[in-house]
Nucleic acid binder design. Sequence first.
DNA 1: GCACAATCGTCCGTATGCGGATTAATCTGA
DNA 2: TCAGATTAATCCGCATACGGACGATTGTGC
Lengths: 158, 158
Amino acid sequence: MASSRRGQAEAVEFDLSNMIGHLLRTCQQLHVAIWTDIFPGGLTSPQFAVLHALAHEGALTQTALRSQVRLDRSTTADVVRRLVARRLITQVKDPEDGRRRVVRLTAAGRALYTESTVRATRVNETMLAGLSDEERARLLSLLASLLEHHKGLLDYQD
Amino acid sequence: MASSRRGQAEAVEFDLSNMIGHLLRTCQQLHVAIWTDIFPGGLTSPQFAVLHALAHEGALTQTALRSQVRLDRSTTADVVRRLVARRLITQVKDPEDGRRRVVRLTAAGRALYTESTVRATRVNETMLAGLSDEERARLLSLLASLLEHHKGLLDYQD
DNA sequence: GCACAATCGTCCGTATGCGGATTAATCTGA
DNA sequence: TCAGATTAATCCGCATACGGACGATTGTGC
């Protein structure tokens, strides 16, 4: 029907389901739905990512942290504030540079991270359950190459 | 370093860059960045999606609209409220069912949609610029099959 | 030294997104 | 008919996200 009107010099009639932005947004909604099923009332995915970065990198300034986790400046401040309020991380002034604030895991934060990795892996597995190993690798690789091609557009380094 | 600790019965040491959720979130950030470059101070991507659905489907109730556009109930109410405030759509009670509110484009809304399709296509093209035609098709298809496999988790039909 | 620039983190306003509660209207079953 | 269930949309609180503005601190050039 709609496709029979094509073939002119006019712009191609597009469908939302073929727009990469629409697909990305919808797939992320799916991911959030799976995540909250498996982490009921607990950590969010960005919060887990912060704990993950701190568990692997040790203490980080907020700038280093958001570069690892790919969070916005403002969002990083928000997430850090909430994790501090839950006593999962601490935030102290950097003695070497008074502008920076060093963030690190508390014992409770490390414990929660450790016990959460199994769930995070389960979310990933559930999300990709419909794809073969080869398809999974291709999908991850294609998404990564989108980011690589536009490296520089997402600053995270200011 | 970290990879030398693997190979046990323990869970596989994962990296954020291989977690589908993290990649999806980051790719969407990229999409938003490209979108706002091309739509400075104008429509957001979900707002455009609403105009698109109304332009192609005519008048829709809010439930039908969010099923088309894949928006949450609450978010739909927000987006509709903002578009009404900008006189791009109207919202009137359905005479056949007083619970429903029928949304439709205004002339200004249709005009803005028509002129915006070129930009939306440009966003799509920019986003996928680093991929071949075959890779683009594969990426869209893989994302669509994620959604297909979990069809039912995203309700949009209540 | 010192004025100026750059950086770090925060804060504000706004938009998307989710879950739960609420209100209004309709439908269903006895 | 009428009480209870269901549905449509809204509202609230909270989390993520972006841009811009703002202090505080540090670095730079002269």
